[in-house]
Design a protein around this nucleic acid. Sequence first.
DNA 1: GAGTTTATTTTGACGGAATCAAATTCTCGA
DNA 2: TCGAGAATTTGATTCCGTCAAAATAAACTC
Lengths: 158, 158
Amino acid sequence: MFSNVNILRKRRIPVTAQRLALLRAVGAQPHATADALAEAVRSEIGAISKQAVYNTLGTFVEKGILRRIQPAGSAALYEARVGDNHHHLICRSCRKTVDVACVVGERPCLKAVDDSGFQIDEAEVIFWGTCSECLEKSGAKTARLGEPHDFCEQTNNP
Amino acid sequence: MFSNVNILRKRRIPVTAQRLALLRAVGAQPHATADALAEAVRSEIGAISKQAVYNTLGTFVEKGILRRIQPAGSAALYEARVGDNHHHLICRSCRKTVDVACVVGERPCLKAVDDSGFQIDEAEVIFWGTCSECLEKSGAKTARLGEPHDFCEQTNNP
DNA sequence: GAGTTTATTTTGACGGAATCAAATTCTCGA
DNA sequence: TCGAGAATTTGATTCCGTCAAAATAAACTC
């Protein structure tokens, strides 16, 4: 709790019980939704409003304390791992989400593409697939492999 | 119109005025939302229900006729370019969306990553940034660079 | 071509996720 | 401790998409 206070102080973010509890909640469960975090906080400090959750998480994302992932078809997820360059792997059937170390190394792909005049600040990569449990459940199906949707590294070097 | 009919016939999708109009609409404007497409269709054939739009677009995506992109914080976009391997570049401030060719390094990241037991079928890549117009408008502001978003921060090591 | 089967479209209600706005309460610096 | 400014609560609201049932249209068979 000590270091969490410092995290906030360091960035001039007023320290409140709600913010501290949210920080702890995100630390405890990675890839959680705003709603799940709200529940976690409630079981710890009693109550928190939906709005406070959104405000706070939004602030944390702005300030670089948290990272927000918004996978297609579901609510945003929040994680405490920032600053390292990792991506995500999501199971289409059970939605399990795991981290994937970035293959390309640092700052993947940011400059190699034709940027059309954009100033790119982030490359968001989500790998979609089926996790091992769901694969077993569905009978070790090898279905979708036929048409892999390749994502190419820009740096062709190994 | 002729070839669009064939696209549907080839896949055993019953041909309807709504589906044909939607196909034309998507062809006319890439990266459009369901709502924008509905409007386009309405100005062409008079009317279409919201549900028909969603049903149809959903079917098209399933059948591989269209591709759906779901950028964080906005409605899904649909595009007719399928089968080629390209990604997207989105302006954070005006939402302009452009295609980015995937520099074909013949190494799809699909297998290179530690897949945690997943069977990966797609790698979704979205580059976020600011387009040239918005850069100018904001006075060639290098604003966001001050607080680098996430991973630019600590990955300055080679 | 007419009739049947099947699938699509329409209509209207509904749901979850997130935001807006106003009033209240709290934190922090003087 | 006090007050200004910021955060939190509350409740309504918007946006995107889905559900369910009835009405309608397309495709297949004869």
